[in-house]
Amino acid sequence: MKQPLLQNERFVQIAAPLFVGVVFLCFWELAVRAAELPVYILPGPVAIAKSFVTDWAVLFHSLMMTLKVTLLAFVIAVVLGTAASLLFVQSRWIEVSLFPYAVLMQVTPIVAIAPLIIIWVKDTTWALTVCAVIIAIFPIISNTTLGLRSVDPNLMSMFRMYRTGRWQQLIRLRIPSALPYFFGGMRISTGLALIGAVVAEFVAGTGGSQAGLAYLILQAGYNLNIPRMFAALGLITVTGILLFALMVWLSDRVLRNWHESALKVEQ
């Protein structure tokens, strides 16, 4: 049986935003041409695409640097954040004593402390990673802690009735209950890790072989190479979207059998 394309959920999900994007780009190009804007004020998509091709080597190298920091920070944030959550649910005391500091870390503007971190941590990659971790870790901590606490109280009663130890409660009950929240935290955290990596690099302003996309943007700004600036910006955006999509895919795979977020509701 062949389904009409417009009723295919997947097709619509991809085609609709793509259509909007193409219309927008066309409009942009036409507007730039009609107004005869110089390329150093606002380049059209065609000029940006050209820059993608000619500058690909340097763009790609910078992308890899930024991606390295982002992924490193994300992994560290997930590991440390989960560990902190597990610690928090062990006792109310630990949570009330430490949670405010997690919030403190969250509300401190990263641009304000990045210079300090860059002074303290010699290696640039690690300095940037530390900054990115600081802002990526909070959603993991807060979501996972919430999840570990959101256990069906009747199920908990049952575990207690069978005199189950803490460890078994954690493995069999708390962790599975927390998974949807944990994945929710991961979705937010990937984006923040990327933002952290870029912002920290802006503050650090270090170039050389370690230069990432942020430095490329800075440099392109000095040289009024606006198409390259846009190309770098585009790469950052696309990277963020892909990382987010990856997280959605991952959580759907893990939760698809049971959690409402990953189910296709059949009425």
Partner: peptide, 10 residues
């Protein structure tokens, strides 16, 4: 229990 109280993931 009054409601089934099953583990949805299992």
């Amino acid at each position: 229990f009054q409601n089934a109280t099953l583990m949805p993931w299992a």
